[in-house]
Design a protein around this nucleic acid. Sequence first.
DNA 1: TTGTAGGCGTTATCAG
DNA 2: CTGATAACGCCTACAA
Lengths: 340, 340
Amino acid sequence: MKKHRVTIKDIANELNMAISTVSRALNDHPAISIQTKKKVQNLAKKLNYYPNLLALNLLQKKTNTIVVIVPEITSHFFSSVITGIQDILKGSGYSLIITQSNESYREEVAIVEHMIRIRVDGVLISPSSSTKKNDHFLKLKKNGIPFVLFDRDCPGVESDKVLVDDYEGAFQAVDYLINAGCKKIAHLAGPINLSTTSHRLEGYKDALKKYQIPVRDGYVKHVSGFTHEDGIKPSKALLKLKNPPDAIFAINDCIAISAIFVAKTMELRIPEDISIVGFDDEPHSRYFTPSLSTIWQPVYSIGMLAIRILLKRIETNEDSFTFRKEVFKPELVIRNSSKK
Amino acid sequence: MKKHRVTIKDIANELNMAISTVSRALNDHPAISIQTKKKVQNLAKKLNYYPNLLALNLLQKKTNTIVVIVPEITSHFFSSVITGIQDILKGSGYSLIITQSNESYREEVAIVEHMIRIRVDGVLISPSSSTKKNDHFLKLKKNGIPFVLFDRDCPGVESDKVLVDDYEGAFQAVDYLINAGCKKIAHLAGPINLSTTSHRLEGYKDALKKYQIPVRDGYVKHVSGFTHEDGIKPSKALLKLKNPPDAIFAINDCIAISAIFVAKTMELRIPEDISIVGFDDEPHSRYFTPSLSTIWQPVYSIGMLAIRILLKRIETNEDSFTFRKEVFKPELVIRNSSKK
DNA sequence: TTGTAGGCGTTATCAG
DNA sequence: CTGATAACGCCTACAA
């Protein structure tokens, strides 16, 4: 049974007054007598009245709604960023729609288009790994919806960006491994096409270059996804090389854990035989045995800054041609999965 | 600069026809000439036209939108349930708004009320641990919005429910531990007031009872949250008892990991000195050392079934007085953190 | 095949 | 202090 939703018209009828009066009473308009207000507000509560925001938003051309589009919420990185976003949004009057693209360009486009249709006020987006085209960002722009890119960059897209210095993080990790005495350092790289993947790969290569260490054949393996399962095969491939590495720098903690797992089943000692460093510093990484050395990122701050920038964009709503690009510095956390 | 959003009126003006014609052309109405359709659709594309769903939804009294409210998305359990939900929703025409209450009753109520205002078609909800009152569920009901409770039950709430047999899971775990030779089994219980907490506690107690083992003093410690940090102190308390347990059944994997961590720092051998069993079977649990014995739950199925039930409710939209209560069976997964 | 008009629920403007 | 009315963008009878 489709219930009839109570509207201000219902209240007006019941109370024998104009709907405009009811509207004003509900909004605590100064020019309404206290008694009228009381009467209206009481009845509203009694009838379980809730204003229809669809009508209001239609009228005001503003929905006070923001969307965040992430590749996947199961990742601790992204769910933490989202928490940072929500903490800023709390009490701001905006509400947040959380959305995941499942690393699919098609889904990402579908989400963006739907968000245009429901007239959200702004979008925070970390593009999927299969996103190579920028047309959906242009659509946002043409519809006057501001957006901020975070974590993953899309070259050629003109917008505000909140990123992490992935190059620097990777460089630090590898530089440290070299100084700890590792000579043969491999890299379990991320899915191709991601800015984070290529920046970290560059950082890896440049750190080697700094010490005139060549990048060996087969020492860089790309994983196809970010789960433990995705890491097993490439880890095996790496550790079963004729000339196996004595250190692995992995694209994230999950993959690093897989590498540790594979190394253990091969009865390698960690870190004596092989040092392993991850990326992300997930909460459980410090509790592993051995506890995982990794690169920490300011997840929470990324979310907070991204939403702050977006809110400012929305509120000043001007078509700027200068965009902010903020880059956070990651930090190396040395634990027991790597030589000291 | 607030951009003017293009509307069918703009298209109608430009093309010198009535807006109704444009509307029909856009919707592929049979009674419109092909040429007109072509003209309209081309211009629409050129102008980057997107229908305003606010207007449409207002008219149709339907938003094709569903919300899911979870205590927190950082939990792997909930983010997996959500993925199950989305997989069913894909292509259904409904879109999903993901929301988190942060385990706060107040935030939960605020979300529910906001969802009433934006007229969502249905709600999936796993109540926060601080939710003791049911009034917000009644509000949904009075506004004719169907909802399905999942994972966590709220006694006294009349609605469809998709749950897990927590009692059974706990019973299995403890029964197994006893049969493996453990004599002094403790329980790191969840936050009070949660249905999952009390059901698992009961399962724990009843399994002990089955073998006439008394519940010892101080052998049940409640944690205050579900993170690793929340588990450290209670684990220490348990393991430093004068008469320490030889097994711990923990409310979830995170807490179990904390217990393992504490046990290791105390130089206890696992599972020889102490067996530890978790709950949830998170993806990384199998990669720990020792790999974690735990209770697996059909996370994905929970999400799928919950949304299926909700969709049916929405589509038949009748005020039923009989509700479905589906209870999934969890399964014990024995790994290396417990005696065999 | 296309145009006219009313309505979805709300607020703002202008009268009274 | 309160009432009538237009408008937000769209769809759908009904009319032409």
